[in-house]
């Protein structure tokens, strides 16, 4: 059904829920499974160091999370391809899905109120609006997302 699935993953409980769904779906469909973490860098940076430090910290922080995700998939017999990219989160996810020709994007959502969404923006909303393929949003509050 889905040949290539992309999970947008930021290590939060909500994205963990999306990852679990992605692994199960990939196992059922025999799909190729990609997990993408996007870290936004400071726009119009003042020093190279400012950017470098952020890249270094993100690599340290997400390397462990992504390796853990890879292990989780392995225990379910699914091979996970992990990616860490930098840029505008929504745009980078969409661009990656286009370039990789993914046919499903799975993302988690915090279950924010309309006001919170208006103030903070929402990656899941951006993905739904701009995705070139089907989108699955794993919805739920934080306490639901640990499994």
């Amino acid at each position: 059904m889905y040949k290539k699935i992309l999970v947008a993953f930021d290590g939060s409980p909500y994205s963990q829920k999306a990852l679990t769904a992605g692994i199960e779906l990939a196992r059922c469909c025999g799909s190729e499974l990609h997990v993408l973490t996007v870290v936004s860098l400071p726009e119009y940076a003042g020093t190279v160091g400012e950017v470098e430090e952020m890249v270094g910290k993100a690599q340290d922080f997400y390397r462990k999370k992504l390796e853990k995700a890879s292990q989780q998939a392995k225990t379910r017999g699914v091979e996970l391809k992990i990616h860490l990219l930098f840029g505008h989160i929504g745009e980078t996810i969409i661009r990656f899905a286009q370039e990789q020709e993914c046919d499903l994007i799975i993302a988690g959502t915090r279950g924010w109120s309309p006001l919170q969404r208006l103030l903070m923006g929402s990656v899941s909303t951006y993905i739904v609006r701009h995705a070139p393929c089907a989108v699955l949003i794993e919805k739920g509050k934080e306490e639901d997302g640990n499994g």
Partner: peptide, 26 residues
């Protein structure tokens, strides 16, 4: 920066990098 990102973003660069170097070396 906005014009470069919107209209002249090098095609396929990210794809190649992403696949060949899933997580860049520290």
């Amino acid at each position: 920066t906005l014009i470069a990102q919107a209209f002249f973003y090098p095609k396929g660069t990210k794809e190649k990098e992403a696949v060949s170097k899933a997580i860049p070396a520290k």
